[in-house]
């Protein structure tokens, strides 16, 4: 599978959500993301990793989205603020990239897991303590720990996102 294909498979939804932060119009967001992918093909010799490819796509999507807003004069209040305050433009970009990247990582992690582990992991990621998760799901703390350990172990399978550190992950996951 080529890098572009893989990036598309894993990140298309996230990239559309990212574009939609600017455009507030899902159909237009999809168009912009698709244009960015086509631009990506032209650069494919230089985009050697998925991360480089994504860095390229986020930047290309942002530029295209801002162009659409400027030229087509799509005007909601939100978008006007985006263009008029250049500081916000950087912040919007940062927020957008980080939020969608984290979200996609999370979706990928969840996809590997059975339902009970999904629930435990979701609560844990949102900052719930083991005891609180137990209460929410009506299971014992030990069961929470058990699911958590299994969830973390399963995540190791796509450890390519974690590279060097996954050994640590394994150790801590067992605690």
């Amino acid at each position: 599978m080529s890098i572009i294909k893989r990036t598309f498979e894993d990140h298309y939804e996230g990239l559309v959500r990212f574009a939609n932060r600017y455009l507030n119009d899902m159909a237009q967001a999809e168009d912009v993301v698709q244009e960015a992918f086509i631009a990506c093909w032209k650069e494919k010799d230089e985009l050697k990793t998925e991360e480089q490819t994504r860095a390229f796509l986020y930047t290309a999507i942002k530029n295209r989205a801002l162009n659409v807003i400027k030229h087509e004069k799509v005007k909601s209040n939100y978008q006007q603020t985006v263009i008029s305050e250049s500081n916000n433009e950087d912040l919007l970009f940062e927020t957008g990239v980080i939020t969608e990247e984290v979200s996609t990582l999370f979706q990928k992690a969840l996809a590997e897991l059975p339902d009970q582990q999904k629930s435990v992991l979701t609560f844990a990621m949102n900052g719930y303590k083991n005891s609180e998760i137990g209460e929410e799901l009506g299971i014992s703390v030990n069961t929470v720990k058990f699911h958590k350990t299994n969830a973390y172990e399963a995540i190791r399978k796509w450890a390519k996102y974690f590279f060097v550190i996954f050994i640590l992950l394994f150790i801590r996951g067992l605690r």
Partner: peptide
């Protein structure tokens, strides 16, 4: 693009932090 790469890196740190697996 550099900015985007930096944000991608931060996202990874945040995600792994939520999993409790960051090195010092």
């Amino acid at each position: 693009m550099k900015e985007a790469k930096k944000h991608i890196d931060i996202a990874k740190l945040i995600f792994r932090n939520k999993l409790g697996v960051l090195s010092e």
